[in-house]
Computed example of a mutant assay.
Amino acid sequence: MGVSMATAEYWVDRWERQQRRYAIHREERFAVLADVAEYATRDVARPLLLDLGCGPGSLAARVAGRLPHAEIVAVDRDPLLLELARTHRAEAARYVEVELGAAGWVEALRLDRAPDAVLTATALHCLGEDTLALIYRHLAQLLRPGGVLVNADHFPAGGPAGPGLAAHLGRRRMARTLAGDEPDWASWWREAAEDPELAHAFAERARRRPATSPGNALTFAAHARLLRAAGFRSVTCVWQYGESRVLVAFA
């Protein structure tokens, strides 16, 4: 039994609204990701893009709108979020259920050529540092020469004064952005679990869900060190507000 379009649309809309709590200037960040992908693939007739930790297809849908000639492979481990994506945003990408960093995860993508860009938004901070380092090594080998990894996420500031200031800027900007009836992460999952139409997806999610990842709180500098150690040539920040940044690494 699948999810109806109306149900998928409702829960994806609720997802988009709750994510506004956690990604400063979320639409602007998505636009920057698409800008970098557009630039990196400007001479490619049919670009291949990967979207890591795609959730219900938020980033894939926006990039597909900007780059309709691109092929997007969107990856996540959560069967519930992928079912919402496949129902509500079926045309945006080919969706693959796989756990990033697990044995054989790259082969499970079934790619017919090297990707031109790997995009990810508010996802890689959920991975432990060792898993992240492994994924960076895999991506450095997977991307075509000159390809890019573009990561929009939270990067805690370094130094004695930076973290407090960056966090304060983020909190103040969020307070000005939220409009009122915005669910948070916990309430979205709690409310979605009560929808009978999603019961089968929650049951599958419970059956497949691996152990909780420890996550990471790596600074931008720490990510840059891991990326260079993995084989990326250079790393730069192309957008920032407080702890929220868009990192670009060149293969």
Rank of each mutant, 00 (worst) to 15 (best):
R171M: 12
E107G: 06
A31M: 01
E28M: 09
P183C: 13
E197V: 08
F250T: 13
R66N: 02
G128A: 09
C237S: 15
L226Q: 10
W105S: 09
D76Y: 05
W15I: 03
L165C: 08
G231P: 04
S187Q: 15
V63H: 05
E194A: 15
W189Y: 15
R233M: 02
L33Q: 07
V238Y: 04
G147R: 04
F30I: 09
F250C: 10
R176A: 15
P56A: 13
R137T: 14
R207Q: 12
A121L: 11
L134Q: 13
T122V: 05
V44G: 07
R245I: 01
L165A: 15
T122G: 10
R209D: 06
T122K: 00
R209K: 13
H154S: 10
L33A: 13
L198P: 07
H223V: 07
A224Y: 06
T212I: 11
A203C: 01
R172G: 01
A6T: 13
V235P: 02
D76C: 06
T236N: 02
P68E: 08
L80D: 06
H88F: 12
A249F: 07
R209Q: 13
R233I: 01
D181Q: 14
D116Q: 05
E9N: 11
L109N: 07
E97F: 00
A64Q: 11
G65A: 09
E107N: 03
A61W: 09
A23N: 09
L132Q: 04
P56M: 09
R26F: 04
E97D: 00
L84F: 09
A6C: 00
V148I: 02
V118S: 02
R77G: 11
G2V: 07
E16T: 11
R66L: 01
F202D: 11
N151M: 03
H200G: 08
F250S: 10
